[in-house]
Nucleic acid binder design. Structure first.
Lengths: 244, 244
DNA sequence: CGCGTCCTTGACACCAGTCAAGCGTTGTGG
DNA sequence: CCACAACGCTTGACTGGTGTCAAGGACGCG
């Protein structure tokens, strides 16, 4: 079973076999969490870092009026911020969308591994910065992109991220979200998500059915979305490889 | 002349006089930058950290269609991310809104000071996490809050941040932004910003004229905006003190 | 079989964008 | 000192994107 964390970090930083062994050891003890459960709730004070190995999780915040905004999707290889415990109380929650295999790593274990492995330290810092860049890009989309292009942009981003950890082919990947979840990501009503999906399918850009995204022409989709991969700060594109 | 960086960091972390001396030494050499200039442009590879001592700066991104989204405001005491050089090319730009006094700190100087002063290291990490929390809150607002409440929320946040560095009284602060700038922060057109400002003034919540924000009843404004200060992760509220 | 969840569709209302014109202030050059 | 341009703010009319409400259908599950 491959380690998505290593797959991700290697997009940026070369890891020696010693580094990889250390990372593999870190994720030995995992547990399965059901879908639609909280990993960390707003107000808690986490004492460890959660790493998603399988499944889909998300950061979100509930407002007083009952609305929910999803602020990030955590795909395999992603984890919540290593320094989060510095803040004390969580100002948002992290939950699972599907059943997940999750690793809990104590702050001490993290400190130890980054102290012993400079490459891993750099790679973790890089991953944190990328998460932040993604957040900024979501904000840009929310403020400036129309609903259809914003949605297309999200699919482009997720395509790259899933591909990086070996979970997407050149033209499709699984995304177990309801239209209502998508709405909470994109700041749209569920009804409008439905309309925009039909819009995109009508243009031949995307189909999204029963949790599976199919992109007949990823290049055309990127053009429509105005997608520029630079903000993910991955190295060369993966499109030359044939993952699957 | 007080050091806004110290004022900010002390909201969370107690700093010894040795720590403060080190921070004061760090900002000895500053330069003045005109308004409406870039400090760092997209695509550059920064080799130092920029710290804003006076004035107002902002992170932004231009889209292919000419639109601009502002992703963060940098008030005195704020700096761009300490690890940003790890990413290589900047995926966005940082510019000044007004003339600014800016300090440029080499990566080495940063590494040195955090290695020698654990409190400062913790405080810097905390500041980075708070910047991220602010970004998340902006995303939440963009996705879920109506234009008027989103605008009110922004003013509440800035009020707290300016107060922290001694640049706001209980009921007002200077915010040298045009309505068009405000639109690029809030994802609104300039015309609609104008309408919402009148709306808020009509409710007696806020007036915003020639770069000055006046809030007759900050508590009422917070309630209208649904503002909860927790995400800023400052300690106790400052409202008991009388900063002016 | 019946229930719940999610998706689909249509009608309608409204928030917010666009376009355009006019106004006030500031700064600059003749 | 005045004319003029530049800029930012204000206002109105109109359009359109998106939300809301509501009803019905498809599907899975107990």
């Amino acid at each position: 079973m491959s380690n998505p964390l290593i797959l991700k970090l290697e997009r940026r930083e070369h890891l020696s076999s010693v580094d990889k062994d250390a990372l593999n050891e870190l994720v030995l003890t995992s547990r399965i969490v059901d879908g639609r459960e909280d990993l960390i709730s707003e107000g808690e004070n986490p004492t460890c870092v959660r790493l998603v190995m399988e499944g889909l999780a998300y950061r979100y915040k509930h407002l007083a009026n009952g609305r929910r905004q999803i602020m990030a999707l955590l795909v395999p290889g992603d984890c919540c911020d290593a320094h989060i415990s510095l803040l004390g109380r969580m100002d948002h929650s992290i939950g699972t969308l599907t059943a997940c295999r999750v690793v809990e790593i104590s702050n001490e274990a993290i400190e130890r591994i980054v102290a012993d492995h400079p490459s891993i330290q750099r790679a973790f810092r890089w991953a944190t910065l990328v998460d932040e860049a993604i957040l900024r890009e979501w904000l840009v989309g929310m403020g400036q992109r129309t609903a259809d292009r914003r949605m297309a942009h999200l699919f482009c981003e997720l395509h790259v991220r899933f591909r990086t950890v070996g979970l997407a082919t050149r033209s499709d990947f699984n995304l177990p979200l309801s239209q209502s979840d998508l709405g909470d990501i994109l700041g749209l009503s569920q009804v409008h998500v439905n309309r925009m999906l039909q819009n995109l399918r009508g243009k031949g850009l995307i189909s999204f059915n029963s949790g599976k995204v199919v992109m007949p022409d990823a290049e055309q989709l990127r053009e429509f979305a105005g997608f520029n991969e630079d903000y993910l700060h991955y190295g060369a594109e993966l499109f030359s490889e044939t993952t699957e």
